[in-house]
Design a binder for these strands. Structure first.
Lengths: 141, 141
DNA sequence: GAAATATCAATGCCGCTGCATCGATCCGCG
DNA sequence: CGCGGATCGATGCAGCGGCATTGATATTTC
């Protein structure tokens, strides 16, 4: 069994904590602005960046569970943010693409999201620290 | 509106990512070992450290929602890990304390939890980096 | 080319979370 | 003391997430 050093546990605790704080902040800002849940943003942005893509790819890129992608897409399609169609060349699969409204909604969400990012990162760390943090966290994930 | 700098967004992304990775690892290890959910550990540890305490304090210390504390305690009491009794001096309140079984369960959970910590932090960062990371994250949260 | 295997996505079931609200108790102020 | 407001914790309801399984199609194997 691995008995982690004290500093390891400290870093872990702070990571869990900072992660929770960041999550809460993002959700709070989005809710405050009357926007959809945080997960929608990630999905919308991913599709916007990659163009039309398949659910199983979104699943892989975003690290989501298969059934969550399935249901999330379902909800988002019902609100007209994405369009899901059969995949040419693979009868099992689908292709997901953004609607104009989806693109617009993503853009509307950004300011609220940005507020959270600003409050959690920009307001608390100077430029050098941000670089250092990004570097260290890159090695973790 | 605050338009965060690119490095700010990068740090944010990596924080969200690392946080998710850590969470997944911890939950995975606990599940693999047939242990209770991650949240139970935090609650058990908090009570173990502070001694008997009141739900509303646990709520504050752990940053949980009131109703989640309430229901979590309820589940844990039913499994015999904590004991909840009326609070002397405040007819509304309660006092929560660990049972022996609660203490034992917390101890049993630790190795699985430690595996996750080891895999996410210790295996990926050297001692100096761990200190640096802990320092930076402390400023965030 | 037929049968076994793997991949893709959906879904029924249950437990947990978020939200709003409630009942009970406590506290402050006149 | 008595009333109004605050605090503590529980809970009904609805929505989301985890798990296991299914149905459909594609791919591999012989």
């Amino acid at each position: 069994m691995n008995k982690p050093a004290a500093v390891t546990v400290l870093a872990w605790d702070r990571l869990m904590n900072a992660g929770a704080v960041a999550l809460r902040a993002a959700r709070h800002e989005l809710k405050r602005a009357g926007m959809p849940p945080l997960e929608w943003y990630d999905l919308l942005l991913e599709i916007e960046r990659r163009g039309p893509c398949r659910p199983r790819d979104l699943q892989a890129f975003l690290g989501m569970a298969q059934y969550n992608v399935s249901r999330l897409l379902d909800r988002m399609e019902r609100r007209g943010l994405v369009h899901v169609s059969a995949c040419p060349g693979d009868g099992r699969g689908q292709v997901v693409e953004l609607t104009d409204e989806g693109r617009a909604e993503r853009a509307r969400m950004w300011p609220a999201y940005a507020n959270a990012i600003h409050g959690v990162i920009e307001q608390k760390l100077d430029a050098g620290e941000r670089v250092a943090l990004a570097g260290l966290l890159a090695r973790v994930a």
